[in-house]
Structure formats: C-alpha cells, structure tokens
Design a protein around this nucleic acid. Structure first.
Lengths: 210, 210
DNA sequence: GTCTATACTCTGATAGAC
DNA sequence: GTCTATCAGAGTATAGAC
C-alpha cells in the first residue's frame, strides 16, 4: 500500500514475493525429484513440502515438466563451474587436487543436486543428452587436452585424461548419491566427508606423482 | 505330453512355463525399474516390455511391490559375491585388483542391476536399509580388517580400508550408472570398459604399491 | 494470488468369461 | 492361464470463486 503515489508502472517483472515463492517451490521440488526421479515425484508431494497448494504451484510454473527443466538448467552451470576453473597455467597436481576438492565440496553442500543429476543419468539423460554431447563434451575434451599436455611434459604421471576426470566425478559424487550406504556401512562416529577428503587426496597424489 | 503314464503327482511346484514367465516378467521389470525407480515405473510399461498382459503380470506376482522386492533380493547376493571372494590368504594387491575387476565385470555385464541398486540408494534405501546395516556392514567390516592387516604387515601402502572399498564401488559402478554420460563425453570409437579396465588397474597399483 | 472444486487421465488391482 | 472389462484411487491440470 503505497502512501506516496510512486510512478513505477505496475510490476511486470517478478515481485519479491513471486521470486520467493518460485524459489520455495524449486527447493521443495529439488527435494522430491532428487529422491524419486521425474516420474516418481508428484505435485502433491512438492506442494506438501513447499507448504503451498497444488494449484498454486501451477500458478508459478506451467507444469510439472517446467519445474523439472528449471531445476536441471540451473543445476548444470553449478556442475560445470569447478571444472572450468582448472587452470592450464597452474601447477598440475595442485590444479587437479583443487578440482577434486571443489567437486567433493559440491557433494557435501549440494547432495540433492547431485542426486537430481544422478537420476537424470539413470533414466538415460532424456532431458540432458544434447548438453552432454555438446557443452559437457567440449569442456571435458578441452580440459583433457590440458591434462595430456601436462603428461607429455612429464609434470604428472601418465593416465588416460578422460578417465581421470571420470574418476574424480565418480569418487566425489558417490558420497552424495550413495550417502545412505556410506553411512550405513561406516556406522555412526564417522565423518564421511572429512575421511573422503583425506583419502582422495592420498589417492590422487599417488596416482599422479611422476 | 507324457506317452508313458508317469506317476508324478500333479505339479504343485512351478512348471517350466511358470518359471519362464516369471523370469520374463522379472527381466522386463528390471528394465523398467532400473530406469525409473520404483514409483516411476508402471505395470503398463512392464507389461508392454514383457509382452504379457497387465492382469497376467498380477497372476504371477501379487503386486508391483512384490516384483520389485523379488528383484532386490536376488540382486543382493550377486552384488556381495565378488567381495566375499576376497581371500585373506591371497596376495594383497592381486586380491584387490581381482575384486575390482570382478566388480567392473558386473557393471559391464549387468548394468541394469547396477542402476536398480543405484535407484534404491538415491531413494534413501527404503527397502534395503536393514541389509545395508546388517549383512553389508558386517561383510565390509570383515574385509576392511583384512585390508588393515595387510597394511599393518606393510604388504600394501596405507589407506583407509573402508574408503578403499568405497572407491572400488564408485569407480566401477560409475561406468554402468552413468553410462550415457561416459559415452556422450567419450564419443564413438571408444570402448569404455576396456579403457576403464586399464585405467583402474593403473590407479589401484599406484595407490597400493608400498 | 490463493483457494475449493472438479475434469480427465493414468495406475494398481480385481472380477469373471473363456 | 490368459484375456476383456472395470473399479477405486491417485495423478496432472484447469475453472472459477474470493
């Protein structure tokens, strides 16, 4: 209720409340989609987790599909960022260890995003195939050639560059995607991520030290 | 059609046809559940893949849940078998490399089983939690102590035994669970499993050689 | 913007003919 | 044993009151 007649036009851009509600919905949807996949998730669940009514969800997003696509789109940027930062001019071992550590940090801080991605892969990547073959492949090929160069210069030990990158993905994402298994096997009194950090540091040092 | 009147009683055990149909259903269900998870899978899909009608599915299995449970039960034995074979009396490095290779073979030959398991983990293991905390933890703790003993004897380099086992799981299962990503990034003209075999052999040799 | 009510489709499961 | 027909409930999405 504006006491002064401000001259701003009627808001065409999302208001603060709209943004907040959309974010609330996306957060709830992430919770549900990451656990049950696209088809296993229901709007009822998302509505309940978000605290909004089901029709209200569909006021902010045109469909269930649109919520899911929105999540995947924002996910990808965050997912590729750590690899983008791998610096060809840096020290090879430090660069790779830093990348591994950033990726492990993503698993620790954003496990739901990791599981959302895993679900999409298990389903055969129906909504991400183009991105995998496009942006992702381009980026990985680029960084793989950086690694190949480091190997050629004898600055790290010889390994298959692409599979080195796969190994970083798999070892770090495992702690998010298989969290229940890791914790069930370790039992209480363990800090999986702290132990993983030390273990993976050792692993990649021994693998890559010339 | 017995030409001689054999005296076998009317079959109370499953006939050959019954066994075959149950197997057909389970195979189709594995295809669908491994891709979409329990809730995302539908009996209609399983019916279509199996070539049987939906009511016929429910003639052989009491419910969707029962099909799923049957799959998970048979899965677990196959899943734990390779680790069980880790021999305390064998050569440490050979034993661990053999285990890794058997596990990679499972990913290559039974990728759907791997994805079924992954789906169950992503969902928080609602139907497997007891097994994880029971049989699985017991087995892993046992083999981890074998590894710890090898380390204490200086026969392999020091690593966290539990996380060494996790690393074998994650590195091998990645090639089944993220198959689409691996192939999209590598492009054609690659044999992911052959390359993985060589890469992982190198990785674990460098990690474990004292 | 948010709600109740509801349209319409899909899904798991059953009944009953053959 | 297998099919067609069908039910009850859940699912996505929309209409319309407020």
């Amino acid at each position: 209720m504006p006491l002064l007649n401000d001259r701003r036009p009627a808001a065409r851009q999302p208001t603060r409340i709209q943004k907040r509600n959309r974010q609330t919905i996306l957060d709830a949807a992430l919770e549900v989609f990451s656990q049950h996949g696209f088809r296993g998730a229901t709007l009822d669940q998302i509505a309940e987790v978000s605290g909004l009514s089901k029709p209200n969800l569909l006021y902010y997003f045109a469909s269930k599909e649109e919520i899911h696509v929105t999540l995947l789109d924002t996910l990808l940027d965050a997912w590729l960022a750590p690899l983008r930062r791998l610096d060809p001019a840096g020290d090879p071992l430090s660069e790779i260890l830093s990348y591994m550590r950033r990726k492990l940090g993503l698993s620790r801080d954003y496990p739901r995003e990791s599981r959302l991605f895993a679900n999409e892969m298990l389903q055969g990547a129906p909504r991400m195939m183009e991105t995998l073959r496009g942006n992702l492949k381009t980026l990985v090929d680029d960084k793989a050639s950086v690694i190949a160069q480091w190997i050629a210069e004898g600055r790290i030990a010889a390994v298959h560059p692409h599979h080195l990158i796969f190994s970083i993905w798999s070892l770090t994402q495992h702690y998010a995607d298989f969290d229940v298994q890791v914790r069930a096997v370790l039992g209480p009194d363990h800090d999986p991520y702290a132990e993983a950090d030390a273990f993976l540091d050792t692993l990649f040092r021994r693998l890559l030290t010339p």
